[in-house]
Design a binder for these strands. Structure first.
Lengths: 168, 168
DNA sequence: AAAAATTACTTTAAGCTTAAAACAAATTGA
DNA sequence: TCAATTTGTTTTAAGCTTAAAGTAATTTTT
């Protein structure tokens, strides 16, 4: 094998070096930047225009999709946050009148959380605006871009899950 | 123009309805899911294997790239977090001996934050592992996938910035 | 040079978030 | 059946995060 000290250009280097993963790192940082950027803007607009926090909005969004309500465990899985986190979040939303806790008829440990009528109405108004903000934030992507990004993120999601399951 | 009440299938609907942005919403939620998934796993491994939190790691990563140190404002811009947040984060890292504050020679308001020797050594060890984790998490994407995802996220970043600047 | 505006940072209050420990109810297994 | 395990939730302690208000130093404007 030819192993002489021939200078390599950047392209070649990336291929030749067995353990260089700077490219994946840059990809991850860019993904993180996009999310942080958009999330921050959404958070800011929700606060300014509706006086609501993003976690509260996210929780109400989950409940809006489940007319019969959800348990804390369901919410925890869907929202990918800890159970303990939800206890406090739900408490505050109960206090503000957006959601109610109902004893589960089938499981005495669990309670079912649902939107109140006013909570649902308030959420729907916010959700409409929210959807427009998102459309605007992604507005410079073509339909083709969006489809392709969707596909690649789907693949990324599966890859991450595989890596997580494999180790955990 | 033919404007009769002909039933539309889902495909046609998406095209015909002027104000439906569910597709962008789904894209955003998927982006968020990917980030949350990966971030959670990285956070968990950093804690288990090194007893360090993700924000501490992120801060050290910024300082490692700036041998001369950085001011809080620099860090704030780079990390996209508030100034007040950094004050506490830096305080804790000073206490644990990972970073030092030095009075800025040119600006009496500012202090320069830099890694200590041991802080840098510790970070480098973590960073090596971290890079492998990321490579593994993105491991099922081909080189072509990664390039394409990088490009689309770049476009997304610009689009979001445009939408934010335009309103702000 | 003095006033006005900006910049760098800290403090505060409130809320978010997690991990870990605890508890009770439900399920599984012997 | 009864013990062991799992599941649903809460509590606790610590740390993260933000927005807003405040302080001090610097820069810009007049």
């Amino acid at each position: 094998m030819d192993d002489q000290a021939i200078p390599l250009d950047a392209e070649t280097k990336a291929v030749e070096m067995p353990d260089d993963h700077r490219e994946e790192l840059r990809l991850w940082l860019r993904l993180l930047t996009c999310t942080t950027l958009i999330e921050g803007e959404v958070r800011s607009r929700l606060r300014e225009q509706f006086g609501v926090t993003l976690p509260r909005f996210d929780l109400m969004a989950q409940l809006d999709k489940a007319p019969g309500g959800m348990t804390l465990s369901d919410l925890s899985k869907r929202m990918m946050v800890s159970n303990g986190n939800l206890t406090g979040l739900v408490d505050r939303l109960v206090t503000s009148g957006h959601v109610v806790r109902t004893a589960s008829p089938t499981d005495r440990r669990a309670s079912v959380i649902s939107l109140t009528e006013s909570g649902r109405a308030e959420f729907r108004a916010m959700a409409t605006k929210h959807e427009h903000w998102i459309a605007d934030l992604f507005g410079d992507l073509t339909e083709r871009d969006r489809g392709e990004l969707m596909r690649l993120l789907g693949k990324t999601k599966l890859s991450a899950r595989r890596a997580i399951q494999g180790e955990g």
